[in-house]
């Protein structure tokens, strides 16, 4: 019997299916691009799950970051997204039931699989030059260690400043192509200067 509630089952193993997955940009392999000093790469291998605290549940055994920050935690890389709410990244775990793993380690929390809801682009190079074109945020609020939700060209994004020269850009999966196009256009214009 394969009908069962989803929330109670933990499966760490990779999916077993004979279907071939597609990357958010539509191909079976991730896209990447180099333009001048910039690199942009689609990262389909990073899993994502949302974690929200419940009223009477214990806080998970992990040091979750404060508003506006991200941190490495026992659950994975945690990005603050709202009051009592985080996104947890699982690098290399996209082929597993990552949400179930997070739920197992954070009992009593509300966990939702987000891997397929989003697309992750990794931007490298002088990222502040891109930031000032892309988002209306003070770069001082997006120093290494910080993570913020904002909007690029009308598209919601979750920005993760991983290092001075590295920025993770999570966008909606359905608008992955528009987001890529917008970033590519910015990089091309910047490289032409």
């Amino acid at each position: 019997m394969s009908l069962r509630p989803i929330s109670s089952t933990l499966r760490e193993s990779a999916f077993v299916t004979d279907l071939t997955p597609t990357c958010a940009l539509g191909a079976t392999t991730p896209r990447s691009l180099r333009l001048g000093a910039f690199g942009l790469t689609e990262c389909p291998e990073v899993a994502l799950a949302s974690l929200a605290l419940r009223r009477d549940a214990p806080r998970p055994d992990a040091t979750l970051p404060e508003a506006g920050f991200w941190a490495e935690t026992a659950l994975g890389t945690a990005l603050w997204t709202g009051p009592d709410q985080w996104m947890i990244e699982g690098p290399g775990l996209a082929d597993t039931d990552f949400a179930a793993q997070v739920a197992h380690r954070a009992p009593g929390c509300s966990v939702t699989d987000q891997t397929d809801g989003w697309v992750l682009f990794d931007l490298s190079g002088p990222v502040e030059r891109v930031l000032e074109r892309a988002v209306n945020l003070d770069p001082a609020r997006l120093a290494p260690g910080q993570a913020l939700r904002s909007v690029i060209d009308h598209m919601p994004v979750l920005l993760v400043r991983r290092a001075p020269d590295r920025l993770g850009i999570w966008g909606m999966r359905s608008s992955a192509e528009s987001l890529w196009h917008a970033l590519e256009r910015m990089l091309a214009h910047l490289s032409a200067r």
């Binding site: 508003a67 506006g68 009051p83 209306n136 945020l137 003070d138 609020r141 913020l148 904002s150 909007v151």
Partner: peptide, 10 residues
């Protein structure tokens, strides 16, 4: 109150 000054566009 949590994130400081943010543009009204958001």
């Amino acid at each position: 109150p949590l994130l400081g000054l943010r543009d009204a566009q958001e």
